[in-house]
């Protein structure tokens, strides 16, 4: 593996409300994420997962430890405004509330906001906006007003707004948490397609197990530390540790584990409903 896209080593961070009481939110996070990976970061509320995402985008500065994103040393005290600017065009971030990240009154104007800030020439902005809206399947809404769109559509516009900056990595900070199931599916399918087709590194921060199960890699954060790191299959096999960290397991995993406890012989760790159904069918055939 060449130089990882995101590298952290023993990363610490605490919110300082006053100097006396600063409880660390991140307590020594070490991980490497390669270019083009599709990673889900799991953790319950207050586990520090969102804080970690904000460090990756230089919204927050780490207290100590190593933090390198896209070749920029974010832990360096000499980090300049221009370096942060350059980093943010590489690493885009989509937030939780779709209403609070759209700036303009017209969809295409909003998508153009990022490239406009980057100083891209007008003709190119047009091309980028059209391409970004097409990539998220929102071309027909180019002239709409954001407040007339559904939550999922607004979130896709927000993704297009980041995409138009042509980043190599996109971080989704609980971007599906406020959406209905349909909107959630729209957003997930959009970023999975971007990961597959455009090779964009996707980091999705979530507490939905079924969402995390779709990623190539799952990192579980608990109490500011990396609890588990591996493929969804590996991580969800360890049901007890997940439950101890205050997290759920995907429904199918829970079902298989419950069956196994009752003495049903099931081999394998299903993470999708189809796999689970197949596994149970096979077990029934054997019986």
């Amino acid at each position: 593996m060449a130089q990882p896209f995101i590298h952290t080593k023993d990363l610490w961070y605490s919110y300082r409300e006053d100097d006396a009481h600063s409880t660390p939110v991140l307590r020594g996070i070490s991980l490497d994420i390669a270019r083009g990976e599709y990673v889900a970061i799991l953790g319950h509320n207050g586990s520090g997962k969102s804080t970690l995402a904000k460090l990756f985008n230089a919204i927050l500065e780490p207290d100590s430890g190593e933090l390198t994103v896209a070749g920029t040393d974010l832990a360096s005290p000499e980090l300049t405004e221009d370096e942060i600017f350059a980093l943010r065009r590489e690493v885009g971030m989509v937030f939780q509330n779709p209403d609070n990240q759209l700036v303009a009154t017209i969809v295409e104007e909003d998508v153009a906001f990022g490239p406009e800030n980057l100083g891209v020439p007008s003709a190119q902005i047009r091309a980028r906006v059209d391409a970004a809206l097409a990539a998220v399947g929102m071309s027909e809404y180019a002239g709409s007003e954001p407040h007339r769109l559904s939550g999922g559509q607004k979130q896709r516009v927000a993704i297009a707004g980041i995409l138009a900056m042509q980043p190599s990595c996109m971080i989704f900070d609980e971007s599906t948490a406020m959406l209905d199931p349909k909107g959630r599916r729209e957003v997930i399918e959009t970023f999975e397609r971007l990961n597959r087709e455009q090779g964009i590194t996707v980091l999705t921060i979530t507490h939905y197990m079924n969402e995390a199960a779709r990623a190539d890699r799952v990192i579980v954060i608990d109490d500011g530390r990396v609890l588990m790191d591996g493929t969804p299959r590996e991580v969800f096999a360890n049901t007890e540790a997940l439950l101890a960290a205050g997290l759920d397991v995907p429904q199918c995993t829970a079902l298989v584990h419950a069956l196994r406890r009752e003495g049903v012989a099931l081999t394998g760790e299903p993470i999708t409903t189809e796999e689970c159904a197949e596994l149970i069918c096979r077990a029934l055939e054997v019986q």
């Binding site: 919204i59 406009e116 100083g119």
Partner: peptide, 16 residues
């Protein structure tokens, strides 16, 4: 969100 989208005022900004 605006900062994340590289907003830093009118300086060096272009329009679509």
């Amino acid at each position: 969100a605006m900062e994340c989208r590289c907003y830093r005022g009118g300086k060096g900004r272009t329009r679509m």
